[in-house]
C-alpha cells in the first residue's frame, strides 16, 4: 500500500517534470516532492518509523529509487532549460562583424624612410656604422676637405645654397665621410644617409631637396676589384636579384680613380628599352677609390690606408623601386600619395 502510493507519487512527479514549461514550474515540483520540509517524499518517510525493520528496509529502497529517478529527471529537465536559456542569451548577443572596427588603421612610413631603413639594416649586417652629419655644413667639410678648393670648377657640379653666416646647405652626404674619418678608428666602414640640397629648379624629375646615402670603407689594400665586388653584392641585395654592374670613368674630386657605376637595365636586361634610353645600362651611382688628398686632409696616411667611397641616390632608388613618376610627391605631404606605401 505504501509501495503503491510511492510509485504513484513518483509517476505523478515524473509526469509533471516532463510537462514543466519553465524553470519555476520545475522548481515547484522539486519543492513539493523532494522538499525536506513538507515534501511529499519526506512526509512518506516520516511514517516509516512504524514499520518493521525488514519492511522499513524494503520501503526505504523503493523510496530512494523513486527519489533518484525524480532527481535525475529534474536535473535533466533543468539542463535542458539552461541550455535553451543560454542559447537564447547568446543569440541575443549577435554581432555584425562586417561593421568596420573602430580606431585608426596602421599609418604609413614615408617611402624614403622605408628604403633607407632597408639599406641601413643591410649595411649594419655588413659591419658598417650608420653616421649622421649636419644638414648645414661649413665650406671645409662640404668642399675643401673633399679636394674641392674654392674657385675649383668642380664646385659648379653642385649648385649650392649659401646661408647667412657663411655656411651652406650640404650638397651631398660626402662631408659625413670626412666627419667619419675624423671620428672613427681605422679600419672603418660607414654609411651616412641623409637630406641634401642643390640649388636647382624643381620639376617632375628635379628637386632641390633629396636624399643620398654615402658609403665608405677604409682599410689596408683596398682595390678596384674590392669595390666592384662590394657594389655588386650591395646592389644584388638592394634589387633582390642578380645585378650586372660596370664601371666607367667619372670625375669627382674626392676619389681617384673616380667612376660612374652603371647597372644593366633591370627592365630589358641589356638589349635596350625606353627606360635605359636604348643603351642597356642605367647610371646608378658615383664611386671611386678615396683620393689620397682627402685621406691626408683627415689625418690618414695614404701610404698605409686606402679605401673606396660611393654615393647612392636614395631618392632615385625610391623612385625606381616604386615607379614614382614625379619627384615632387615625396615632399608634397599628400596623404593620397603617402598612404600607398
Amino acid at each position: 500500500m505504501l509501495d503503491e502510493s510511492i510509485q504513484e507519487l513518483a509517476a505523478g512527479a515524473l509526469q509533471r517534470i516532463a510537462m514543466a514549461g519553465t524553470a519555476e514550474e520545475l522548481e515547484a515540483v522539486r519543492v513539493e516532492v523532494l522538499g525536506r520540509k513538507g515534501g511529499a517524499l519526506a512526509e512518506i518517510s516520516k511514517g516509516m518509523g512504524k514499520l518493521s525493520p525488514d519492511e522499513r528496509k524494503r520501503i526505504g529502497a523503493v523510496l530512494n529509487q523513486a527519489k533518484q529517478e525524480i532527481e535525475t529527471a529534474l536535473d535533466a529537465r533543468k539542463a535542458t532549460f539552461e541550455a535553451v536559456a543560454l542559447a537564447a542569451k547568446l543569440d541575443s548577443e549577435w554581432l555584425d562583424l562586417t561593421v568596420p572596427a573602430p580606431g585608426p588603421r596602421r599609418g604609413h612610413l614615408h617611402p624614403i624612410t622605408r628604403i633607407q631603413r632597408e639599406l641601413e639594416d643591410l649595411f649594419v649586417s655588413l659591419g658598417f656604422a650608420v653616421l649622421d652629419g649636419p644638414e648645414v655644413e661649413d665650406e671645409y667639410h662640404n668642399f675643401d676637405a673633399l679636394n674641392i678648393p674654392a674657385d675649383h670648377p668642380a664646385r659648379d657640379m653642385q649648385d649650392t645654397f649659401w646661408l647667412s653666416g657663411g655656411n651652406l646647405l650640404r650638397t651631398h652626404t660626402s662631408p659625413v665621410q670626412v666627419r667619419g674619418m675624423e671620428r672613427l678608428k681605422l679600419p672603418l666602414r660607414m654609411i651616412a644617409p641623409g637630406r641634401v640640397f642643390r640649388n636647382e629648379s624643381v620639376d617632375a624629375s628635379h628637386e632641390h631637396t633629396f636624399y643620398q646615402l654615402e658609403g665608405m670603407m677604409i682599410d689596408r689594400n683596398v682595390s678596384v676589384a674590392h669595390l666592384l665586388y662590394f657594389m655588386k653584392t650591395l646592389l644584388t641585395a638592394v634589387f633582390q636579384r642578380d645585378v650586372t654592374v660596370r664601371l666607367r670613368p667619372g670625375y669627382f674630386p674626392f676619389v681617384e680613380p673616380g667612376f660612374e657605376l652603371d647597372i644593366q637595365c633591370l627592365i630589358c636586361g641589356g638589349p635596350g628599352c625606353p627606360v635605359c634610353k636604348q643603351s642597356g645600362w642605367v647610371e646608378l651611382l658615383p664611386c671611386g677609390l678615396v683620393n689620397p688628398h682627402v685621406l691626408r686632409q683627415s689625418g690618414i696616411d695614404p701610404d698605409e690606408f686606402g679605401g673606396f667611397a660611393f654615393g647612392l641616390g636614395l631618392t632615385r632608388l625610391v623612385m625606381m623601386r616604386y615607379s614614382i613618376d614625379d619627384i615632387r610627391q615625396l615632399q608634397g605631404g599628400d596623404l593620397r600619395f603617402l598612404e600607398q606605401f
Partner: peptide, 25 residues
Amino acid sequence: VEEVGRMIGYDSITPEAPLAPVAPP
C-alpha cells in the same frame, strides 16, 4: 691608376671580396 685602369677597361678586373675584420659597428 685611372689612366691605366680606364684604358685596360674596368670590366677586365675580376670582382674580389675584401678581407675585413669581423666587428660589430
